[in-house]
Write a protein that binds this DNA or RNA. Structure first.
Lengths: 205, 205
DNA sequence: ACGTAAGTGGAGCGGGTATTCCGAATCCTC
DNA sequence: GAGGATTCGGAATACCCGCTCCACTTACGT
């Protein structure tokens, strides 16, 4: 690849990163190209589909997402690790509107992200088992509840980002107390894993 | 008003009701006019601004919203009334995507809706006090938490409407257990009323 | 039944989007 | 530094949006 091409590729990635962070995944391509100081054609030549661009932009964020599960697993107290994990991931959503979309709304199918997602899900399963084993996480917590949290958090975050950027912490505070074993009361059934998967695919056409 | 004009007005309202319910408040006017079987000009003549249309369409839903607080207040057990209120309102969001927007996202400024909102807020304040007095609702529950619930629920509902239409019940189940006094653990500060107000105004420009 | 005021619908305008095409500019090699 | 392949950027295309204008139609009072 020619040197200027590589340079432009980087500029597009950086512009896309900030535009997605501010405006979410449905930001306009024109805006990204404009901010990168590059023609739209250049953007499309390098990233023919939106998925290509999103995949490249969020590769590192997804790595951080996977790393969050690893850190949680490294915590000697699995319940503490779990709480920290939820808070950290919700913080990531609050910090980056595009990433919130990646986690809950549009589910880009870029393969790299897909793999990361699976790895995170695996680690999360182990974490949940351990946390339940300590008796601190309620037994009926389902792994499907995690995307549910992310969707709820996304709702709060998108609504309050400008006016009350920390409002989501209150929601997460409530939820974590509800996840504690002491809070146990019967709950409605969680959605099935398949349902959650389909919900996540929703907008990725 | 001429009879045919009145008839068309009704048709537009009905079409708008169903389109908003399916697609949310940002549905296109073209689509509404098309489904009503009228020209776009007719729609605009009758409802010059989007607020006029939204106000007319959701007048009855807002009335039901106010009625929900009244019913909650009528419950001999204020805590039970509170739980029922939350569930009912979240159900209304789940049933009507447009109404979910009215409650959390766009905050149309139509005066009729504004008045209803204020009336509901008043009733809610009384309900919360009573529920706290019984010792079942935690003391640190803030009235600002209610819009927070609605935003969180809106997030779940918009993400899962097609694939897992009952998923929101699980979220609300968790939240209600967190609101119970027994669950009490310190929480992050709630957003200020002013912050919440500004968050609700967000998209109404 | 007929004149007129009220009402209608679709074409049209201005502005937004995604995506493609192609002549011009740029880089790299020799 | 010259030639040729590569890459660029903006114009062009084809949509979709909200909203307005206006020639035509309809209902209603007389």
């Amino acid at each position: 690849m020619r040197a200027d091409a590589e340079r432009n590729r980087e500029r597009v990635l950086e512009a896309a990163r900030s535009v997605f962070a501010e405006q979410g995944l449905d930001a306009s391509t024109n805006e990204i190209a404009r901010r990168a100081g590059v023609g739209v054609a250049t953007l499309f030549r390098r990233f023919p589909t939106r998925d290509d661009l999103v995949g490249a932009v969020f590769a590192d964020r997804m790595a951080a997402y996977v790393a969050a599960t690893d850190e949680a697993l490294a915590d000697p107290d699995p319940w503490h690790g779990f709480c920290g994990y939820i808070e950290r991931v919700c913080q990531m959503q609050a910090d980056d509107r595009g990433f919130a979309d990646v986690l809950t709304l549009t589910f880009p199918t870029a393969k790299a992200l897909e793999d990361d997602r699976n790895r995170a899900a695996e680690g999360l399963g182990v974490l949940l088992e351990r946390a339940k084993a300590t008796g601190k996480l309620r037994e009926d917590f389902a792994h499907q509840d995690v995307p549910l949290i992310l969707m709820a958090n996304a709702g709060v975050v998108t609504a309050t980002r400008d006016a009350a950027p920390d409002a989501w912490k209150r929601l997460v505070g409530y939820l974590i107390q509800a996840f504690a074993a002491e809070a146990f009361q019967p709950l409605p059934e969680p959605p099935s894993p398949r349902q959650v998967y389909r919900a996540l695919l929703r907008l990725s056409t």
